[in-house]
Simulated assay, not measured.
Amino acid sequence: MNWRDKAECLRTDPELFFPVGTTGLALIQADAAKRVCQRCPVQEECLRWALDSRQETGIWGGTDEEERRLIRRRQAREARRVAS
């Protein structure tokens, strides 16, 4: 069984996870999507997949595009620190 088969979002309109824009109604939509993620049993796996596959749009693992960019930057800084 794939982790996606257990995802809470399977029972939700997929459009919820792809808000258009970053203000107003899109923020409300993103918050609603993140609430679905909070109760998802595979949230961590989803986020890991989104980071590994460099998902640039949508809500994945309870994070939006900017939050994932910050995570990737932090991971890159840590990797450089460990390498030096």
Rank of each mutant, 00 (worst) to 15 (best):
V82G: 05
Q43T: 06
P19L: 01
R11N: 05
A26V: 09
C37R: 00
V82I: 13
T63N: 02
A50T: 03
V20L: 14
W3T: 02
A26P: 10
I28Y: 12
W3L: 01
Q75R: 15
D13C: 01
W60R: 01
G58I: 04
Q29V: 02
V36A: 03
D31W: 06
R39D: 09
R80H: 13
G62R: 00
A33C: 09
G58E: 04
P14F: 08
P14Y: 08
E67W: 02
A76F: 14
D5F: 11
E45M: 11
Q75D: 14
R69G: 10
D52G: 12
R69Q: 14
S53G: 15
T23S: 14
R68G: 00
T23Y: 11
D13S: 01
E8D: 08
R73L: 07
R54A: 11
S84L: 04
R77F: 15
V42N: 00
L47G: 04
E65G: 03
D64R: 02
D13L: 03
D64I: 03
L16H: 02
W49M: 06
P41G: 08
P41M: 07
E45N: 07
D31F: 03
M1R: 11
T57G: 09
V82Q: 09
G21H: 09
E44D: 12
Q29R: 04
D52R: 12
L70M: 14
E65T: 08
A33L: 09
R48E: 15
I59D: 00
D13Y: 00
L70P: 06
M1T: 10
P19W: 04
E15Q: 11
T63P: 01
R48P: 12
E65Q: 10
R48I: 15
A30Y: 08
Q55R: 13
W3M: 02
A83Q: 05
N2A: 08
C40D: 02
N2C: 03
I59E: 02
V82N: 10
A83T: 07
P14K: 10
W3D: 01
L16C: 03
L47E: 03
D31M: 05
T23N: 13
Q43G: 06
I28C: 10
K6N: 09
L16I: 04
R48G: 11
P19Q: 07
P41L: 08
R72L: 12
